[in-house]
Amino acid sequence: MEAKEQSMQAQEQKQLIMRVAQHRDRQAFGALFKLFSPKIRAFGVQRLGQQGLAMDLLQETMTTVWTKAHLFNADKGAVSTWVFTIMRNQCFDMLRKVQHNREDAFGDDIWPLFEDVESGDGMSDHKMSDKLLENMDKLPPLQRQIVQGVYLQELSQQELAERLGIPIGTVKSRLRLGLEKLRSYLEKHHD
């Protein structure tokens, strides 16, 4: 029963944010504002200890909701999760200012928002996807040997260097070249 009510609420909020996103619907935004503002202010008072700062938090948070509604991605979570993320991140930065007198904005680095786009390929060395490995056979043999050793046999770079009788620097550079090549295959594949 309660869960049903919650998902009803969540559905309604999703409708509202869509209306803001697609039509800059002021009434829908007003409804969201009414819905979230008491809680945001309460959170602000609790964390920041001042009514004035809590009002700043409210204004900043809801401004982001208004200006970025079109970037909200319903596949990634509920509206409340998105608004909470914006609020918590903003509050983190405000707290840094209050406590350490620092004007920095690190919140969104630490808790990335839904809509963040990677400038690179979105893949880092520690997260080799299966997709990437599909193209393994296309690699030149010397690079393939290293990439397979590291990612499929889980050998350390030092172990590989010893087994193959080559310097560790060579292992590193072949690995780097191999990974770059795999990524470029993947990018072409996507185009």
Partner: peptide, 19 residues
């Protein structure tokens, strides 16, 4: 007045974040 102020703002572009 806060609502008015907020809704006078244009949409924000999608940010591309550096690695």
């Amino acid at each position: 007045s806060m609502l008015e102020d907020i809704m006078s703002k244009p949409t924000a572009p999608q940010e591309v974040t550096p690695d």
